[in-house]
Simulated scan of single mutants.
Amino acid sequence: MSDNSSFGSTVKFGHNVKTLFRWTGSTYRLVWKEFIIYTMAYIGLSIVYDFALDDDGKKGFEDISAYCSKYTSSLPIILLLGFFTSTSMQRWFSLVHSMPGTTRVIASFVMSIKEGQPEGYQIVEQYSRWIVLGWALTFRLICKPLKRVFPTLVSLENAGLLLPHERLQLESEIASNHPIVVVQWNLALLKRCNRQGMFMDFSDYQRNQDNLMTFKKSCGDTIKFAAKNIPFALIQAVTITVYSYGLASLMARQLTDEHTPTSFTIRYFPVLNAFQYFLYYLWLQFGRLAAYPFSDDENDIDIKRLLQAHVDDAVRWQSLYSSPGLTEQIVSHSLHNSSHEWMVNSFTLVRSKVWLKLIRLNQKNLACPKAQRGLISEPLANGNNQESALM
């Protein structure tokens, strides 16, 4: 038992060390340039103080250093950073939860269309394409990397997400209304399918309509959260505060006598000053990343990869209607050759774990004083009732 625990502790320690020295997506990648600039400026000021100033200059330098020290202690930097970061993270969570998904709305439509319809595959393909198109048009409004991939509606047409006559109609609308227009196309397609009796059940029309309106609401919420960004004045105020603290901390350093053991370290290695400042700087960077998560940074949401994933999912759901033979063969073969050994093995595993727990409880019961044996529940404390407790 102790060997297993020590092995688990070793693995956990190794994982923590690996995480600590990871470069991709790390805090080191966010601050390494600024850290080099800060260190060079700090050492440069130390060289100026030690070798370029006379006694009167050093006296003035020390006065400025003392003034900067009082200035840094009076800044409400923690209050501003806390408010800014909490606001950014709340907005980030709201934005992530409001992001639309395509799987539910496409899968519900595919599974509700009757098989063998004359235009069944074309309708399923068009419905799925319009859902993915609405998703792409939504994030094209708020995501600059996706905007660079599809700068115009012609680029969407070249990618196969848009047809020429559809592009002409979208060009007559403003860009912010493009996702709504595509949803209207799908609503008209649902009405046509209902009029032609293509749904398996009379309730499928209403259910698909509800899913489509939920998709529309998610697209609208995503645009709303991205458009109503955090006020620029707040970001500017926090940025000025952090950078002014960093500039002041270059001078607000403790000047020691030349013969103290730590004088060289304090003058030429800004360990404590840099550590405190870059904690604030990282806090600011996290707030900025959360305020706009659709950029090109590796910590941002990869919208281009998400779009490709939605396209792949749509193609798979279309194949479930167009060529269901392979899937039906797998289901039929599994039904006729089903194995229940997994159930027996799982029950045996659970039963063995329960017995081990009962044995340990009985061992604790034997080790307990007589006055404390009543604390153990009766079915588990009584060895004759172990089978009834298991059941």
Rank of each mutant, 00 (worst) to 15 (best):
E119Q: 07
E119Y: 05
E119C: 05
G120R: 03
G120M: 07
G120I: 00
Y121S: 01
Q122D: 06
Q122I: 11
Q122E: 04
Q122R: 03
I123N: 01
I123K: 08
Q126D: 07
Q126I: 01
Q126S: 13
Y127R: 03
S128E: 06
S128M: 09
R129V: 02
W130S: 08
W130Q: 09
I131Q: 04
V132A: 05
L133F: 02
G134R: 03
T138S: 10
T138Q: 12
F139A: 06
F139E: 01
F139N: 09
R140G: 06
R140N: 13
R140T: 10
I142Y: 06
C143W: 08
C143F: 11
L146F: 07
K147N: 12
K147D: 04
R148G: 02
R148K: 15
R148M: 15
V149R: 10
V149I: 15
F150D: 01
F150Q: 04
F150I: 13
P151S: 12
P151T: 15
T152S: 15
V154S: 09
V154R: 10
V154Y: 12
V154M: 05
S155E: 02
L156Y: 00
L156M: 09
L156Q: 02
E157K: 05
E157C: 10
N158C: 08
N158I: 10
G160H: 05
G160L: 04
L162T: 02
E166H: 14
E166M: 11
L168V: 13
L168Q: 07
L168P: 04
Q169F: 11
Q169R: 12
L170C: 15
L170E: 08
L170V: 14
L170N: 08
S172M: 15
S172Y: 12
E173R: 13
E173H: 14
E173Y: 14
I174H: 07
I174W: 06
A175H: 15
N177Q: 15
N177E: 15
H178Q: 14
H178W: 14
H178M: 15
H178K: 09
H178L: 13
P179L: 01
I180P: 02
I180Y: 05
V181A: 01
V181C: 04
V182T: 11
V182G: 03
V183L: 06
Q184H: 14
W185P: 05
W185R: 07
W185D: 01
W185E: 04
W185M: 14
W185C: 03
N186M: 14
N186T: 13
L187R: 12
A188W: 02
A188P: 00
L189Q: 03
L190K: 02
K191R: 09
K191T: 03
K191C: 07
R192E: 12
C193Y: 00
N194S: 14
N194A: 09
N194P: 03
R195K: 12
Q196F: 11
Q196S: 10
Q196K: 08
G197N: 08
M198R: 08
M198Q: 07
F199G: 05
F199H: 09
M200W: 00
D201V: 10
D201P: 00
D201Q: 11
F202P: 06
D204P: 05
D204S: 14
Y205M: 06
Y205C: 01
Q206P: 00
Q206L: 11
R207V: 10
R207S: 08
N208E: 04
